[in-house]
């Protein structure tokens, strides 16, 4: 069963993502800030990460950047989530190596499909 790591500081959003991923048949771990997200990647070895940009400590970009430098994180599929609707941020995320970029509020269906597609691709 593929593992998905959900990183967001909004408990209700985490709750919804967790439910959606479980419903889609994935194993879910959660983290609510950047440092614990990096730790979870190291200990749990997720197959995909849903990463919010506005985190209390590190920004999502920083987490992304640091992950891409580790051997395990270099090829890990990562989807960025953001409440900022600005185009520059999307470009920045993609440039830093994000695999996809989803703007909040999102369509649950589209999100689940994207996750599935990326996991298939990675496999």
């Amino acid at each position: 069963m593929p593992k998905v790591l959900v990183v967001d500081d909004e408990p209700n959003i985490v709750l919804s993502l967790e439910f959606l991923m479980q419903q889609a048949g994935f194993e879910v771990t959660t983290a609510e800030d950047g440092e614990s997200a990096l730790a979870r990647v190291a200990e749990a070895g997720p197959d995909l990460i849903l990463l919010d940009i506005s985190l209390p400590d590190l920004s999502g970009f920083e987490v992304l950047e640091r992950l891409r430098q580790t051997p395990r994180g270099a090829t890990l599929p990562i989807i960025m989530l953001t409440a900022h609707g600005r185009e520059v941020e999307r470009e920045k995320g993609l440039a830093l190596g994000a695999d996809d970029y989803i703007t909040k509020p999102f369509s649950t269906q589209a999100l689940v499909e994207k996750v599935k597609a990326l996991l298939d691709e990675a496999r």
């Binding site: 959003i13 919804s16 506005s54 609707g85 509020p105 649950t108």
Partner: peptide
């Protein structure tokens, strides 16, 4: 926009669920 989107995200997600 950021602050409005955050609750809206939860609302939409759960509504769809």
């Amino acid at each position: 926009s950021h602050e409005l989107r955050t609750p809206l995200t939860s609302i939409r997600a759960f509504a769809e669920i």
